[in-house]
């Protein structure tokens, strides 16, 4: 029998993998992957809590908004990656200093 805990464990594991990527990776594309994983882990939590603890579809509505926002955010980040690649021929984020003050 699958309980709420099991979904939360999967979500926590996905979150931990995303944080591992954010901490270790220097490649901009891998950082985009990590951020998407964090958003997905949060979405799993929303849906699981909504299914087990709340009779209305409030969590599902919030996840729809979250997915739409994540799509817009991914579009902007990927545009920045393409621009950075054209300017520097490199996507190592520790080499990108031109945004610093």
């Amino acid at each position: 029998m699958i309980t709420l805990d099991d979904y939360l464990f999967v979500s926590a594991a996905l979150f931990a993998v995303g944080v591992y990527g954010l901490v270790t990776k220097r490649n901009a594309m891998r950082l985009v992957f990590s951020v998407e994983m964090l958003i997905n882990a949060a979405n799993i939590n929303f849906i699981a809590f909504n299914r087990y603890l709340w009779p209305a579809a409030l969590g599902q509505t919030l996840v729809l908004f979250s997915i739409a926002l994540a799509a817009g955010e991914a579009a902007v980040i990927l545009a920045v990656v393409v621009v950075a690649y054209r300017m520097h021929d490199d996507v190592d984020v520790s080499e990108l200093k031109s945004l610093g003050g």
Binding site: P55, Q60, L64
Partner: peptide, 8 residues
Amino acid sequence: TPPSFVGI
């Protein structure tokens, strides 16, 4: 009972 997507 599962929440209906009508609620969305």
